[in-house]
Nucleic acid binder design. Sequence first.
DNA 1: GAAGAATTTGAAATTATTTGCAAGAATAAA
DNA 2: TTTATTCTTGCAAATAATTTCAAATTCTTC
Lengths: 260, 260
Amino acid sequence: MLASMLAEERQQRINEHLREKEFCTLKELSEMLNVSVSTVRRDINFLKTTGVLRRTHGGARLSEQVEIEGTHPLVPNASVRSELKECIARYCASLIEPGQTVIMDGGSTVFSVARHLVVKHPIVITNSLPISNLYSNYRQVEVHVTGGVVYPRLGVLTGPNAVEGFSKIHADVAIMGAGGLDVQDGVTNTHALLIDMQLAMIKAARKVIFCMDSTKLGARSLFFLCSADQVQTLVTNSDVDPVLVKALRKKGVDVHLVPC
Amino acid sequence: MLASMLAEERQQRINEHLREKEFCTLKELSEMLNVSVSTVRRDINFLKTTGVLRRTHGGARLSEQVEIEGTHPLVPNASVRSELKECIARYCASLIEPGQTVIMDGGSTVFSVARHLVVKHPIVITNSLPISNLYSNYRQVEVHVTGGVVYPRLGVLTGPNAVEGFSKIHADVAIMGAGGLDVQDGVTNTHALLIDMQLAMIKAARKVIFCMDSTKLGARSLFFLCSADQVQTLVTNSDVDPVLVKALRKKGVDVHLVPC
DNA sequence: GAAGAATTTGAAATTATTTGCAAGAATAAA
DNA sequence: TTTATTCTTGCAAATAATTTCAAATTCTTC
């Protein structure tokens, strides 16, 4: 047998595979992972309890609710606009000075920030189609879109062109989302494709603001982005474990707690 | 048998197929999905209960409530839906081979072509946000977006980055619109910013198709794009001055007249 | 390290589901 | 009407899920 694999690693690869393909059969996975169908079935059943996928006959399907951080399903309105996100977003927007150059990623919370940012007449650099659309109606906001290939379900531009788009510019602030932030594990995100992009964003910005609601704190996603002490500013709702906040502040993170 | 497919996946593909074609037969689906007509029938009957489609004899029709175009925020103005444009667009789409690499600009007629092009599963390169949005719901279409600055009202990406985006690639066909075409004045367009872009598109494509309705023929806009003899293919409605058509053909233009 | 406990894995038997097929009924077309 | 499809229904074959159990692996503890 080939290099044996830990259960956790296997499940991670299943998750990864599903995020790309949306559907897959047990057989397919068992061949990919060199384990029996029984084992794959057990893994899948476990992953079902964590909510990342749904079972179907003969296979699994990516759970619809798994957004990228989550990146809005292409309809950014409606359900995604939770009061919590709205609240964090409003505060986050208040941190931006008029006329600043702002990088924004494809996260759903970031999209909410974008809506509150119109009055600041920013110059926006983004790889998010929804944000581009949002501003294309407002002349007051200058929007620079990176190139790239559209990642279907999510509406973000990915690939080398997108990364290159960020590597060529400099911005005052980057506003980003992520799937998890933990003292030990640092910042993590759900899609491998986003990591390169977000790294380029961080590099291009003088200041980085992470926006995420408290459910993301203490959690971790699949892919590592950066360590906790590399986070300059964090905006979240005040519903967080105070111990975690203290630990983050000790690491030098400027934590803003928004009462919601 | 080929890679077996999950029931849910099949149903999703039926749904997607219907969004493209609006109507299709069971036989057609059974061939597409490599399953028996019985199975397709069962799938269809299930989908009927979810409301995404209606049953007919021998086939299924997309439910009226389901917007064909999906939800793209940047809906081009109402004029886009004119029967004339629709008609030209449909014909123009028929000129494209399945799987071709297609450059599309931000013109409203071109947008209509884009809607008819989904079934050809093209690789699309565009600087148009509306087109990017349109396809972001369809996994079958690979969309490459050039970078650039959003030109507010039109939702097209402009500037050096956009031009560069086209200069790096090669495509089978470019489908473009313009503000005017005249034997003497050549092709002209309304926005200076678009000229550089369109020149880059023309350079990157092996074949160039101009789509414009007959009101644009004989007219001229402010900015010069290229001379008439540089136009390879023109698709327009048959309501044109025959003298003009003759003159264009004499210049080597392949004029397609669509009866509308 | 080795022995034993605990867990994980693969495989077999049983049960449940899905799929394809066929015969007669129903529907549309000629 | 006749004719040709398509639909329904029931059934058998194929496929997948569940349960169970033995072998293999990992984890303790010495």
